[in-house]
Amino acid sequence: MLIATWGFAAWVPAVRAEPVVLSLVHAAATTHPAHLAALQFARRVEERTQGQVRTEIFPASQLGSENELLQKVRLGAVDMDVSSMNYLIKYEKTFSVVVMPYLFDSYAHAHRVLDGPAMKWLAPLAEKQGFIILSNWEWGFRHLTNNKRPINGPDDVRGLKVRVPPVAELEATMESLGAQVSKVGFKELHQALSQGVVDGQENPLNVIYYNKLYEVQKHLALTRHVYYHTLHLMSAQSWAKLTPAEQLIVREESKAAGDGMRRKIIAEEEDLIAKMTAAGVKVTRPDPAPFRAATQRAREEIRRFAGDENVRTFLKMVDAERSP
């Protein structure tokens, strides 16, 4: 039973012999805002359910790669995951539209689209594949680092050997700029950069900083080429084990934790840039217009994969939420 109070639902415990213990996995380091958000979520859910729903957190891909973890969630072997949107593409190609380069003008623009019309459109597609989207969490705009030269325009990317996650849409974006794409695993990335196996990589600022990638990179270009966010997902099988009252609390606390993560990641970006600059990284802020033009081929590849109708649907949402 729920009683509204102070904007939240007051909790009346379900009758249960043993508490439900949920597993929550994610790929971030324990110093990363994602882990702090996971800790907040677990604490608040346990408090509000009076210990009836508890969460065990497994950070830093302890239980497998992101692809492996998502499959475990789908099968119900793991209860929850904080996963990048792109990993859902293997189950539903429509999700690839979100990874198109240079879609969003700002964080606020991305949030209006993804929390609003896109969530109503994409969440039912995820549920058909066995995933409940609890809420959107942050990751950030992606940027490019390398050890060869400063990046001031698309031509400066040409010929660089750049590590990219195993995401076809990101590969297409880097290839459209003339980069040679490498698929080094993330756990091996720091060493690969330090040994010159690859020249560079692309990630949000928080990933570059908290995983200390900047320590083995000379140049950082604030390209903002793709906006990336994560999803707090739950197995549909695990979701069904919760009472409606527990489900409501889980959703509320997921959103609260994700909103806090967003604020922290956005607020600290200039500070992270300053820290990396102080460590000797040379930072450039290139004009996005030439990059947007140069990545047109990548957008066309994504259109062919996702389908014209899906792309048109999503771009209408993006345009409708653009500030005048």
Rank of each mutant, 00 (worst) to 15 (best):
R16G: 09
P59E: 04
G116V: 04
V198Q: 00
H143D: 09
R322I: 07
G196F: 04
D105H: 14
Q191L: 12
R303L: 08
I3W: 04
E171W: 14
I3V: 12
E246D: 07
A289H: 08
Q217T: 14
H143G: 03
T30C: 11
D199M: 14
E270M: 12
H143R: 04
Y210I: 08
L193Q: 05
E309H: 07
L231Y: 06
P124V: 02
T145R: 02
F8M: 10
A306G: 07
L36I: 00
V15D: 11
A221D: 04
P33W: 12
T243D: 12
M234K: 11
Q40A: 13
Y210M: 13
G178T: 01
T55E: 06
H232C: 02
Y228W: 08
Y227E: 09
K72N: 14
A298I: 01
D287L: 01
V99F: 03
T277K: 15
D287H: 12
I302L: 00
L177S: 04
R112V: 04
Q52R: 02
A278N: 11
N147Y: 09
V15S: 13
H232L: 04
L134V: 05
G260S: 01
M80Q: 02
S182F: 01
H35M: 00
L315C: 05
E188K: 00
L36K: 14
K275D: 13
Y214H: 01
A38G: 03
N203H: 13
R303K: 15
D79V: 00
E321C: 02
I273A: 06
Y210F: 13
N206S: 13
T277P: 06
R16Q: 14
I266N: 08
Y107Q: 03
E300Y: 07
P290W: 03
E66D: 09
R16P: 09
V12P: 04
W239C: 12
Q247V: 06
E301T: 02
E269D: 11
E215Q: 15
A192K: 06
I132D: 04
R54M: 14
V15A: 13
T284I: 10
A192C: 09
V283T: 14
I133S: 00
G185K: 13
E300D: 05
A257P: 00
V53P: 12
V281R: 00
N136E: 11
V198N: 00
D79R: 00
S182C: 03
G76T: 04
